[in-house]
Design a protein around this nucleic acid. Structure first.
Lengths: 144, 144
DNA sequence: AATATGTCTATAGATTTTATAGATTTTAAA
DNA sequence: TTTAAAATCTATAAAATCTATAGACATATT
């Protein structure tokens, strides 16, 4: 399961994608619209800023705005940043690899293969899911 | 990520699959071979027993043994039992559905579709992964 | 009767997640 | 140049979850 932090991040980013190239949006507005505790959101946005997905402007009239293009921010990147590994086992993670303590020998472990499969299929789907697509889908659904 | 509990369960089950129809195996032996804290393992095996995946025999010469056939126990069942939902969002879970608090309106949420895709692909892979296959794979790897 | 085993209840420690408070810095505008 | 609005930083705490353990109890075998 994704953490709340991660879900908040996704929602905030989709919101900012909807305001792409329309100047900074301040935290309070995002918090209000997406029902996210403001202080928690602060930390999240800061992290997204440090990852160069967002940028910010301080002071009056300031706020956060999308730095990358909406098509260039996919769910893989967001989830990895917020929650870490996408794989279900540390020993099959591409970006957060760690040996499994439980496993005596990784080479003869019959379990890993299944989770390598899960990982690859998951990445395939998430790679296709970028902010632009999500926003488009949202608009399409909203018009019904 | 799978919990330790879940990983312990998988390892214990694979171990018991290797002893299918060879009588009860006692907890201590499984704990020793798979490096699982005995008391923790107790609780896990009990849960698997209540789910009719294992059965047990009390008293001297007792222990746990696989109740279902190895081909009939797949990773979906084990993970759901130990860790709950397989989906990354509660609102797309088949067995543990809950509305997302963060979402104002599920029908117009542009995020769900991606995670429905992830869920379906994940299930597809895990469904194919049963104890018999894992055991077979393990044996094949061990012989090298 | 003695012993070996699973079963049950309770709890505690550790870790992670979620949330909040308050002080500080920066910028824009009056 | 002052004021206000906003992000930034540091610290902490409440809540939830995960991991592990202890000890009493029930049951089956020899």
């Amino acid at each position: 399961m994704l953490s709340k932090k991660c879900k908040y991040a996704i929602h905030a980013l989709v919101y900012l994608a909807g305001r792409y190239q329309q100047g900074p949006v301040h935290i309070q507005e995002i918090a209000d619209h997406q029902h996210i505790p403001k202080k928690f959101l602060e930390a999240i946005l800061l992290e997204l800023r440090n990852a160069k997905i967002l940028n910010s402007k301080k002071g009056k009239g300031g706020g956060y705005y999308l730095y990358k293009k909406p098509e260039e921010v996919n769910l893989i990147e967001i989830i990895r940043l917020m929650d870490g590994a996408i794989a279900m086992l540390p020993c099959v993670s591409l970006n957060y690899y760690e040996p499994c303590e439980e496993c005596r020998d990784e080479k003869t472990c019959g379990i890993r293969d299944s989770f390598i499969g899960v990982r690859d299929e998951t990445l395939k789907v998430l790679k296709e899911s970028n902010l632009a697509k999500i926003l488009k889908r949202e608009k399409a659904l909203g018009r019904k």
